[in-house]
Design a binder for these strands. Structure first.
Length: 837
RNA sequence: GCAGAUGUGGCGGAACUGGCAGACGCACAGGACUUAAAAUCCUGCGGGACCUAAAUCCCGUGCCGGUUCGAUUCCGGCCAUCUGCACCA
C-alpha cells in the first residue's frame, strides 16, 4: 500500500516552519557550531530548477545529521535577486523588477518549503533589499578608501543597432542576440576592483583549505601565475634611436637571442605615440579597427589563422644581440596580459612559430634538445651538428635545417647560439638571463598573473547603485556612510541610455547631488554593481541577518566563522568563489571578519540533465518541473531520488522510471510496519547488518556518497522482507538513518511507533566496530589471476591455515592438476593466488 | 584554443589502499494473485561456445601499449563526450 505523502509532508512542514524547529540557536552557547552553506538561488521566473534541490538536499542531509550529532547548526537560505533577466522582463513588459522579483521569491520560498529543507528561514536575506545592499555599498566604499576601487577605460560589448552595452551572454556569434546587428568593442570608463593585488594570497591560502583538488587546480590556473622578466627593447626609426623603449614580458628570457621580431597588441600605445614615424599608418589603423570587432575570446582561439601587419618605419633593437628586428601588430597578443607586447621567438613558441611561418619571418633556434644519452648520443657531437645546421636561421623548406615545429620543452633544453648562456639547461639559463638583464638594467624579474582586475560597473538598472559622486573640482568621492543605503530610484523607463549608458543616466533629478567634500553641485555615478557584488559576502549576513549597525556583529562573526562546508556548482569556481574570497580577505585586512578565508571546505555537485541527456532548457523542451514531481511522488521520494541518481559530483540525466523506483522503496519502508515485532535490542540475525549499516551511512554522508547510502537502505529493506521480520529497535535505528534523506515519512513513522521525541531531537545512531566484523571471511582463490574457487576461513586464520584449506579444495586441486606451482601469494583477508606453469 | 572533468551491461550506476567486475535501482522476460488490469510478491537477467539443462570454458570496464602473481584502479600514448572561459547566474 502506498503511503499518503501529501498529508504527511504538509503536516510536518507546517510544524517545522511554525515552530522554527531548525533555526540556529542565538545564544552562542558552548555547543560546537556547524555552518553549512549552499549557493543561494537567483529567483528566476521559471521557478526552482530540479538542479537546485540536488545541492540543497545534500547539505540538508549533512545539516540534519550534524544536529543529531549535537551541533548548533546554521543552514541558511536567501535570494540573489539582482540581475539581467528581471531587467529584460521589465523592458519588455513594463513591470518593475522589484515586483517580478518579489513574486518570484514568493514562489521560490513555497517551492523550497515544500521540499522540507531544514533552512533557518528567520535569517532569509535578499540582495535587492536596501537594508542588505546598504552593506554591499559600504564594502565598496571601504575598497575605494583603500585604493582597491579605481576608474579605468575598459572595452564593453556595444550593439551598433540598439546602441546599448551588452553582456557577453547577449552576444551570439559577434552579433546582438536581440536585433542581430554587429557588436563592437567600445571604450568606456568603468569602476574596477584590484583583485590582482590579492592574486598571490588567493593562491597561497588555498593550501590549508579543504577544497576538492579540482577546485584548487581550477582556481590556481585561473589566477595563472607565471614567472619571467620584463625586458626593454630600444626602438629606432631610420637608424636613429627613439626616446622610449618597448617593454615586453617573457617567461623565457633564455630565448632572447632567438627573438627575430616583436609583436604589440592592436591597442598598444606605441602606435599612437610614433604615428608620425610609421610609414604604413593606414594599413596599421585598418588592422586595429578590424581587431576591435573581435572579443578576447575569439582572438585567443589558437586554431584561428594568425593575422597581423608589420609596423613599417619602426624597428626594435635586441638588447643582447644589438640586431635590428621588425615590429608587428597582431591580435594574438592581448593588451590585457603582461605589457601588451612580446618578443617573438618563433623557434621556441608555438604561436610565434605559426606567425613566423605565415609571414615568412626568420626562425632562429637557440635551444636544442638534451642528448639522449641512453641511445649513446654525445652532447658535444649533437651540439656541433645543431649549431652548424641552424646557425643561419634558415627559412627554406628544402633546407635540412628547416624546423617543422617549435621546440618548447623547458625541462629538456640546452641553450646554444646564445652567447653567455651557451651550454646551460633551460632552467638555469632562465635564471642567468634574468640576472644579466637586471645587472645591465635592461629590465627586471617579474611575476605575472593571468588574473585581471574585476570590471565592476554595469550599465544596467537592476543592481546596487555605486555610491560615488563626481565633482568637477574634487573628482570622485564616496557618499558619506551615514547616507547609506543609496537607494535605487523607482523608475519606469528601463531602456538603456544613449551610447550604452545605464538607464539611471536618464534620471536627471536623482543624479543631481552635492559634493561630499566641497558641497558644490555634483553628479552621482549612474552605473550599478554586477550581480557578483551581493553574492560576495551574503554568508556573513546570515550570521546576523537583522543587524542595522554593522554587516554582522563581531560576536556573531566570531562564533560562526568560518563556513564549515560550502557546496555549489563547478561553474562558480573561478568567478563567484574567487570574488568572494577576495572580498573576505579584504574584510579581514580591515579588521571586519576574524578569518582570512571564508570557506573551510568546498565541494561541488554535478548538473542534472534532461531525460535525453542534454542540458535542460526551455527551447529543448526537456525541463522537469519540481512542482510536478512533488505532486506526483512527494518531497521525500524526490529527495531520495536526487541522492540516488548517481555520484553527487557528477552530471546525471533525469529518469522518470528511476524516480518511481525510489517511491516504491519508500512504500516498502512504510509497509514494514506490517512485519514489525517488539524488541528493545537488535535481533541476533540483524545485529551485524545494523552495525555495518550505521557505519556505512555515517561515513557515506560525510563523503557525500549519498547514492551508496540509499543502496544500503534498499539492501536492508530487502533483508527485512526476506526474513519477514523487523523489530522495533531495528526500525527505530533505520528511521533515524533514513531521516536526513526522507525527513517527513520517517518522522511520521517514528511517532506511529509511539516515540515521544521527534527524530531530529534524538542522537545519531552509533555502532560498535567489533560488531561490524565478520567471523568468517570468503577468500577467492585465483590461478594466474583468475578466480577458480572461493574458500571460507576464520577471520583470524593464519597463512598456513588458509593454505591448508585451499590445498584441500576440490576445485583448486582440479585446476592445478598437471601443472607446476611456481609461487603462491596470500594477501591476508583478501586473496589467495597460485601461479602455475 | 586554454583550463577542469568523464568514459563499466539495454539504462542510471557499484567496486576499501592494485585483489571475486556488474552491489543497488530501472527496464525487460517468466511465474503467483486477479474475471481483468493496475498495484504487490517470487524468479531470471553482461556477451559468447555446447541441441537443451547442469557443469565447464572463452571474451569483457572507450582504444593501443606497459608495469604486476593479479589492473576498472598505476604509467605512457591516443580517441570521444561534457563543463567553464572574466557583463548569464
Amino acid at each position: 500500500m502506498a503511503y499518503n505523502f501529501k498529508e504527511i509532508e504538509e503536516k510536518w512542514q507546517e510544524k517545522w516552519y511554525r515552530e522554527g524547529t531548525f533555526n540556529a540557536k542565538q545564544d552562542f552557547s558552548n555547543k560546537k557550531k556547524w555552518y553549512g552553506l549552499i549557493e543561494f538561488p537567483y529567483p528566476s521566473g521559471q521557478g526552482l530548477h530540479v538542479g537546485h534541490p540536488r545541492s540543497y538536499t545534500a547539505l540538508d542531509i549533512i545539516a540534519r545529521k550534524k544536529r543529531m550529532e549535537g551541533y548548533n547548526v546554521l543552514y541558511p537560505i536567501g535570494f540573489d535577486a539582482f540581475g539581467l533577466p528581471a531587467e529584460n522582463y521589465a523592458i519588455k513588459n513594463h513591470v518593475h523588477p522589484k515586483i517580478t522579483t518579489e513574486n518570484n521569491i514568493n514562489h521560490f520560498r513555497e517551492q523550497l518549503k515544500a521540499l522540507g529543507f531544514s533552512f533557518d528561514w528567520s535569517r532569509e536575506v535578499n540582495t535587492t533589499d536596501p537594508s542588505y545592499y546598504k552593506w554591499t555599498q559600504w564594502i565598496f566604499i571601504q575598497l575605494y578608501k583603500k585604493g582597491l576601487a579605481y576608474k579605468a577605460t575598459m572595452p564593453i560589448n556595444f550593439c551598433t543597432g540598439c546602441k546599448v552595452g551588452l553582456a557577453n551572454e547577449e552576444v551570439v556569434n559577434g552579433v546582438c542576440e536581440r536585433c542581430g546587428s554587429p557588436v563592437v568593442q567600445k571604450e568606456k570608463s568603468q569602476w574596477m576592483l584590484k583583485i590582482t593585488e590579492y592574486a598571490q594570497r588567493l593562491i597561497d591560502d588555498l593550501e590549508d583549505l579543504d577544497f576538492l583538488d579540482k577546485i584548487k587546480a581550477q582556481q590556481t590556473n585561473w589566477i595563472g601565475r607565471s614567472e619571467g622578466a620584463e625586458v626593454n627593447f630600444k626602438l629606432a626609426a631610420n637608424g636613429e634611436e627613439l626616446d622610449s623603449n618597448l617593454l615586453i614580458y617573457t617567461t623565457r628570457p633564455d630565448t632572447i637571442f632567438g627573438a627575430t621580431y616583436m609583436v604589440v597588441a592592436p591597442e598598444h600605445e606605441v602606435i599612437k605615440k610614433y604615428a608620425d614615424k610609421i610609414t604604413n599608418l593606414e594599413e596599421v589603423n585598418a588592422y586595429k579597427e578590424r581587431a576591435a570587432l573581435k572579443s578576447d575570446f575569439e582572438r585567443a582561439e589558437l586554431n584561428k589563422e594568425k593575422t597581423g601587419v608589420e609596423i613599417k618605419g619602426i624597428k626594435a633593437i635586441n638588447p643582447l644581440t644589438n640586431e635590428e628586428i621588425p615590429v608587428w601588430i597582431s591580435d594574438y597578443v592581448l593588451i590585457t596580459y603582461g605589457t601588451g607586447a612580446i618578443m617573438a621567438v618563433p623557434a621556441h613558441d608555438d604561436r610565434d612559430f605559426e606567425f613566423a611561418r605565415k609571414f615568412n619571418l626568420p626562425v632562429k633556434p637557440v635551444i636544442m634538445p638534451k642528448a639522449d644519452t641512453e641511445c649513446g648520443q654525445l652532447q658535444e657531437e649533437l651540439e656541433a651538428k645543431f649549431i652548424a645546421l641552424f646557425n643561419d636561421g634558415n627559412n627554406e623548406e628544402n633546407d635540412p635545417a628547416y624546423m617543422k615545429e617549435a621546440f618548447t620543452d623547458v625541462e629538456n633544453g640546452i641553450s646554444v647560439n646564445s652567447g653567455f648562456l651557451n651550454g646551460l639547461p633551460s632552467k638555469e639559463a632562465i635564471e642567468k638571463a634574468i640576472q644579466y638583464i637586471e645587472e645591465n638594467k635592461l629590465g627586471e624579474r617579474k611575476v605575472n598573473y593571468k588574473l585581471r582586475d574585476w570590471v565592476f560597473s554595469r550599465q544596467r538598472y537592476w543592481g546596487e547603485p555605486i555610491p560615488m559622486v563626481y565633482c568637477e573640482d574634487c573628482g570622485w568621492n564616496p557618499i558619506p556612510e551615514s547616507e547609506l543605503p543609496l537607494v535605487l530610484p523607482d523608475i519606469e523607463d528601463y531602456e538603456p541610455g544613449e551610447n550604452g549608458e545605464s538607464p539611471l543616466a536618464k534620471q536627471t533629478e536623482w543624479i543631481k547631488t552635492k559634493c561630499p567634500c566641497c558641497g558644490k553641485d555634483a553628479k552621482r555615478e549612474t552605473d550599478t554593481m554586477p550581480q557578483w557584488a551581493g553574492s560576495s559576502w551574503y554568508f556573513l549576513r546570515y550570521m546576523d541577518a537583522h543587524n542595522d549597525e554593522a554587516l554582522a556583529s563581531k560576536e556573531a562573526l566570531e562564533y560562526w566563522s568560518p563556513i564549515d562546508w560550502y557546496n555549489g556548482g563547478m561553474e562558480h569556481t573561478t568567478l563567484h568563489l574567487l570574488y568572494s574570497r577576495f572580498w573576505h580577505k579584504f574584510l579581514y585586512d580591515i579588521g571586519v571578519v576574524p578569518t582570512k578565508e571564508p570557506y573551510q571546505k568546498r565541494t561541488s555537485h554535478g548538473m542534472i540533465l534532461g531525460t535525453n541527456g542534454e542540458k535542460m532548457s526551455k527551447s529543448k523542451g526537456n525541463v522537469i518541473n519540481p512542482d510536478d514531481i512533488v505532486n506526483e511522488f512527494g518531497a521525500d521520494t524526490f529527495r531520495v531520488y536526487e541522492m540516488f541518481m548517481g555520484p553527487f559530483d557528477q552530471t546525471a540525466p533525469w529518469s522518470m522510471e528511476s524516480i518511481r523506483g525510489c517511491g516504491k522503496f519508500l512504500d516498502r519502508v512504510w509497509n514494514m510496519q506490517e512485519i514489525l515485532v517488539d524488541g528493545e535490542e537488535y535481533s541476533k540475525e540483524h545485529e551485524k547488518m545494523m552495525h555495518k549499516a550505521i557505519k556505512k551511512v555515517t561515513s557515506d554522508i560525510e563523503e557525500m556518497k549519498f547514492n551508496t547510502s540509499v543502496a544500503e537502505f534498499m539492501k536492508m529493506t530487502n533483508e527485512f522482507y526476506k526474513d519477514k521480520v523487523i523489530n522495533k529497535a531495528e526500525y527505530k535505528t533505520f528511521l533515524q538513518l533514513l531521516n536526513p534523506f526522507a525527513p517527513h515519512m520517517t518522522e511520521e513513522l517514528f511517532s506511529i511507533l509511539g516515540e515521544s521525541k521527534t527524530i531530529n531531537e534524538t542522537p545519531w545512531p552509533t555502532y560498535d566496530e567489533a560488531k561490524t566484523i565478520d567471523d568468517e571471511i570468503e577468500i577467492p582463490v585465483q590461478l594466474n589471476g583468475k578466480v577458480k574457487a572461493v574458500v571460507l576461513v576464520a577471520k583470524e586464520a593464519s597463512e598456513e591455515e588458509v593454505k591448508a584449506v585451499v590445498a584441500a579444495n576440490e576445485s583448486v586441486q582440479k585446476a592445478i592438476d598437471g601443472k607446476t606451482v611456481v609461487k603462491e601469494i596470500y594477501v591476508k583477508g583478501r586473496i589467495y593466488n597460485i601461479v602455475v606453469k
